[in-house]
């Protein structure tokens, strides 16, 4: 496990409710894999008490940097916006398992919703480097919550859905799921209902699928059993697994949503 004092290189608003945070954290950057996250301490004081889990949007081991894209949700993320370039923050990470990629994949689908788009960019970059063909579906409430669109366009065909129709298809991003998919792997991150739909659809179509789950975390390092999710094993038995340590990425087929 890596504890590090990260230096803030840049912290700026990119959309009305989203900020982009660039950190210099050479040790974490050298260890990190796409799909992993860090625990980020928003203040050196005890309020707010818990660290915030944030996915890695970009990993640059050569320069020792990590990029986070965060949505302003409450107290912790509001405090984050006040930390200027040059500031420091304690981080733990990288944590968790990250996305699984196999060498022989030829074609993959990425489905992201809201803040769940964040961990898909580094994944897309890694897949594109391996010359895996990509289709990408992005969804959000409105166009002000779609980020990284340009970056994705450089690597793949991208379709967008917004609930208010301000960009792309009007409705759920899952409306855009194809009838006859032929992917080696489907990757998804976003609100639970989105991932549940994608996992169900993938299962029906006989496609393999990885989901990156979110849960409220206590320690973020695997000790407290706070952030568990329900996982069904092959024999049908149910166990609670830790999102922070056994995940956040799970096989879509194993996850019991709504539980």
């Amino acid at each position: 496990m890596n504890l590090e004092k990260a230096k803030v290189l840049d912290n700026q608003k990119i959309l009305p409710n989203y900020w982009q945070l660039d950190l210099y954290a050479p040790k974490a950057a050298s260890l990190a894999q796409a799909g992993q996250f860090i625990m980020l301490q928003t203040t050196p004081y005890a309020e707010p008490f818990l660290k915030r889990p944030m996915s890695l949007n970009r990993i640059n081991p050569e320069e020792g940097t990590l990029r986070i894209i965060y949505q302003i949700v409450g107290k912790g993320t509001q405090i984050l916006t006040t930390i200027p370039a040059g500031g420091e923050m304690d981080i733990i990470g990288p944590q968790g398992n990250g996305w699984m990629i196999q060498k022989d994949y030829r074609k993959a689908l990425l489905v992201g919703g809201g803040a769940g788009i964040a961990p898909l960019l580094q994944l897309a970059i890694n897949l594109a480097e391996k010359e895996i063909k990509l289709d990408i579906l992005l969804g959000a409430a409105d166009r002000d919550a779609i980020f990284n669109h340009q970056e994705f366009l450089q690597m793949a065909s991208v379709s967008v859905a917004t609930m208010d129709g301000s960009r792309g298809h009007k409705g759920f991003v899952t409306d855009l799921l194809p009838q006859t998919p032929d992917y080696d792997m489907i990757y998804t991150c976003g609100p639970n209902p989105l991932m549940e739909k994608v996992a169900l659809w993938a299962g029906q179509k006989g496609q393999a699928c990885q989901v990156s789950l979110e849960e409220r975390m206590g320690c973020g390092i695997g000790t407290c059993m706070g952030c568990v999710c329900k996982i069904k094993s092959k024999d049908g038995s149910i166990a609670y697994k830790r999102v922070c340590k056994d995940g956040p990425v799970f096989d879509g087929e194993e996850v019991v949503f709504n539980g």
Binding site: R216, G218, M225, C227, V228, G259
Partner: peptide
Amino acid sequence: RLGNETPRIAETPCGLLNSVGLQ
């Protein structure tokens, strides 16, 4: 022991509530 359903953690001022349920 399987423990309780989630959410099991709620942050509160200067602390947290947990209901892990002895997993």
